[in-house]
Computed example of a mutant assay.
Amino acid sequence: MNKTNISKLFPWLISAGVAWTIGCIYNVYYGGELSWLRRMYEQKAAYAAQIEAPNRLIITAGSGVHYSVNAEWMEKKLGIPVFNYGLQGDMGLNVIKPLILEQARKGDIIVLIPEYLMLMDKDGLGDGDGLYGSAPFGWAVGQPGLGGIPPKKLIEDTWLLGVTTLRAATKSTIDVIEKGRMTGYLSDPITEHGDPTKVKERTGKWWELKLNNSVSPHSIKVIEQFRKDLEAKGAHLIVALPWIYGSTDQTTKDSIQKSADKLSQVVPTLYNHQTLNIQTDSSIFADTHYHLLPPARIVRSQELIDQLKPYLAEYIKQPELQTKK
């Protein structure tokens, strides 16, 4: 290719670079779904850091935590600080782990409630096929490669930062016209306990979630190391199985039971041994098989309190927690 042909490419390269940069600003800093996830994470990190008590109960994983517990209500019941650190499941365990380790202090009790897709993930890097994935999120928070993402995948996924879909751009345009600002799924305000302030309800038909696999060896390895790393800081890890609107077919029940048994070998694992945390009433769920409506969040939070009390009594050395109502 001669110099003349190369010079003709410059305008196209410049145009492509400008378009990518605009898309990146939209996706990462304001307007795109990744921008709202980044902002929510930064807000939660700041709120959690402000808690100065010697013992904090931090509940974490994806949106199945964010929209399924009421941390403020739990705090009032337990008398210790409780924080909702639910983020987004597509980020994967490899990313959740270092984010929480960075936050953890001596005396903390970390309750991990991962969605089943997160538990069954073979490499811990989450979905990775969209802007909620581990690679784009790492770039968004200024930690490229967060979670040990392989360099090749990191390079391949980086282009997503500057890619804006027509659907997303159209939605943002309509938001600006109708509301005067851009909004997104995670753009709603959160409380100082990390709880959501808006309720999202499903408009489509429900179906029972079915599971065909149990927790992956990689997830077991990550969770076991997570426990060891937290204990080295003087903190503790507990895993709880999520509530789901799910099928009670034998394959699903066997998959959940296998996950519970494998997890119990490496970390304290909380779940209802009769129901396996499978809920059969879709009316208590919000917009996904993991997200609960506010009244159900209270029921779920009370169940967690009851299951956690023996561990809190041991870790915090307050036996009265076993009987506190």
Rank of each mutant, 00 (worst) to 15 (best):
residue 3 K to I: 08
residue 269 T to H: 09
residue 57 L to T: 03
residue 164 T to V: 15
residue 114 P to L: 05
residue 177 I to S: 06
residue 206 W to M: 09
residue 310 P to K: 04
residue 244 I to M: 10
residue 206 W to H: 10
residue 174 I to W: 13
residue 225 Q to Y: 01
residue 58 I to G: 05
residue 313 A to F: 12
residue 139 W to Q: 13
residue 68 S to W: 05
residue 307 Q to L: 14
residue 116 Y to C: 00
residue 271 Y to C: 01
residue 70 N to Y: 09
residue 308 L to W: 11
residue 88 Q to K: 09
residue 160 L to G: 03
residue 267 V to F: 05
residue 236 H to N: 14
residue 73 W to S: 00
residue 46 A to Q: 14
residue 128 G to K: 02
residue 142 G to I: 07
residue 83 F to G: 01
residue 231 E to Y: 01
residue 316 I to S: 02
residue 253 K to P: 01
residue 320 E to C: 06
residue 194 G to P: 10
residue 288 T to I: 06
residue 46 A to V: 00
residue 28 V to G: 03
residue 163 V to D: 00
residue 53 A to R: 07
residue 307 Q to N: 12
residue 193 H to N: 08
residue 43 Q to D: 06
residue 222 V to P: 02
residue 132 Y to L: 15
residue 214 S to W: 08
residue 294 P to W: 04
residue 132 Y to G: 13
residue 247 S to V: 12
residue 38 R to E: 14
residue 188 D to A: 15
residue 8 K to F: 09
residue 43 Q to F: 09
residue 311 Y to R: 04
residue 70 N to T: 06
residue 234 G to S: 00
residue 68 S to Y: 01
residue 131 L to Q: 01
residue 211 L to G: 02
residue 31 G to V: 06
residue 297 R to A: 00
residue 178 E to D: 12
residue 29 Y to K: 01
residue 85 Y to L: 15
